[in-house]
């Protein structure tokens, strides 16, 4: 984040926020990465509802679950809870 910071004449009054949090990726916090096995996944839709970071989405076009690695912090809740055991957590650096 090296962008020039605004001066007092430029920022909105009263500390009103002017950037959406979605401009602030949190994916680089991650140590472990969830990987889903699409063969095992039953698309039960539990994981999107228990993800703290809205990092598991339902893609309407593909009719499938997808991870948003820009925001996934790698907590592992999805893997822990998946009834089909379709998600495993892998260490980030283990990836090629």
């Amino acid at each position: 984040m090296t962008e020039k910071q605004k001066g007092w004449k430029e920022v909105p009054v009263a500390g009103v926020c002017w950037k959406p949090a979605t401009d602030y990726p949190t994916g680089d916090w991650r140590t472990f990465k969830p990987i889903r096995d699409p063969e095992k996944c039953t698309k039960c839709l539990l994981c999107p509802m228990i993800c703290p970071d809205s990092a598991i989405e339902w893609n309407r076009n593909t009719e499938d679950i997808q991870f948003d690695y820009d925001f996934c912090k790698g907590c592992g809740i999805c893997a822990n809870e998946c009834p089909a055991e379709a998600i495993i957590m892998t260490r980030e650096e283990e990836e090629a």
């Binding site: 910071q5 605004k6 001066g7 007092w8 920022v11 009054v13 009263a14 500390g15 009103v16 926020c17």
Partner: peptide, 26 residues
Amino acid sequence: FRLDPENPITIGPLDLYDYYFEHKRQ
């Protein structure tokens, strides 16, 4: 500048050393 569902704004955030001073100057 008001709480209006049609045009949402956020009032009263956590404002640290990077901008708090600017708001006080305002």
